[in-house]
């Protein structure tokens, strides 16, 4: 008799696929929040597997801050074409133009906080009742307690004291009108799991993740790409650096790491020895010890 057990990656994959299928079964209008980062790319891959030979039965929603890396957009469009899935883009620029939000000013200006409004507006316009995201519990302390099915009230808010207990694999997606859920199928994955899975499944990624040469400025210890979106302080200097990205957020706030890792083997070796968490390279989390939790409560992931 063979050994009847799964490797950890297979078990995590089976769990994520189960959750994605539950979402489609329990909700009327699900969607996948697609950031262009590796976690949401993995989620798109899992969704494809979950429903094959059907096409993915929900749209991808991308909240375009207007500050994206061009590589992200190119990649997004080619992936959408390949999967034959519908893409909806919510534009922060439009929210600004319509006066729904006010742009931050100053050298550290970021559109990250503004995304929340555009996101909630987009979900409401499309009447999305379940928005799947690629967030993982290992990313940040506030996420360690997040559920797979995370209930949001009619204002899109998360109440950490009032989450439903989650038992076995019985997910309770019942809700009242106007409420919705955020769902995190890869909750139990770590950064290492994601990279190993990308390698195992041979999943294509935007070039940003691999080592390349780029003009950068170093601000408060964070390596930021030079771009039209970033205002230089008087004493700041642009330098050519060999870098790669560990997450792909907005250009003005996503920090790069110096790295020669130009293929998956090298990245995995690097991840295995890296001593800072992924989100540590994002300038927005440094705003305060509970920055993530505060934004979460207001409707950002």
């Amino acid at each position: 008799m063979g050994q009847y057990y799964l490797s950890h990656l297979k078990e995590l994959e089976a769990e994520a696929i189960f959750v994605i299928r539950e979402v489609v079964s329990q909700f009327e209008k699900p969607a996948l929040l697609f950031s262009g980062g590796k976690d949401s790319i993995v989620l798109a891959h899992l969704s494809k597997k979950a429903f094959y030979p059907s096409r993915i039965p929900f749209p991808l929603i991308h909240i375009d801050t207007g500050h994206n890396f061009p590589e992200t957009i190119i990649f997004r469009d080619s992936l959408v074409g390949e999967l034959g899935v519908k893409l909806v883009v919510g534009s922060v620029q439009e929210s600004i133009n319509e006066g729904r939000v006010r742009e931050e000013t100053g050298v550290n200006a970021s559109r990250n906080a503004l995304q929340t409004v555009t996101l909630l507006d987009t979900l409401e316009d499309l009447k999305i009742d379940a928005a799947m995201g690629g967030a993982r519990r290992d990313e940040e302390k506030a996420r360690a307690k997040e559920r797979f099915f995370s209930h949001r009230d009619e204002f899109g808010q998360w109440d950490p004291k009032n989450q439903r207990p989650e038992l076995w694999n019985l997910f309770n997606g019942k809700k009242h009108n106007g409420e919705h859920f955020r769902i995190f199928p890869i909750s139990n994955w770590t950064e290492m799991d994601v990279w190993q899975y990308i390698q195992q499944e041979n999943i294509a990624l935007p070039s940003l993740y691999f080592s390349h040469q780029r003009e950068c400025v170093v601000r408060d210890g964070v390596i930021l790409a030079k771009s039209e979106f970033i205002k230089l302080k008087p004493n700041e200097e642009v330098q050519l650096m060999t870098v790669r990205y560990r997450t792909c957020g907005d250009m003005p706030i996503t920090g790069a790491v110096e790295s020669d890792a130009d293929d998956l083997d090298k990245i995995i070796a690097e991840v295995a020895t890296t001593r800072t968490t992924e989100r540590g390279t994002r300038a927005d989390d440094k705003r305060g010890e509970t920055a993530m939790e505060d934004r979460k409560k207001s409707g950002y992931f």
Binding site: G2, Y4, K10, E11, A14, F18, Y52
Partner: peptide, 14 residues
């Protein structure tokens, strides 16, 4: 799964 044949399916496989 995903068009790939599976010889034996057991818990907790999707």
């Amino acid at each position: 799964l995903n068009g790939e044949a599976i010889e034996e399916a057991f818990a907790p496989m999707s």
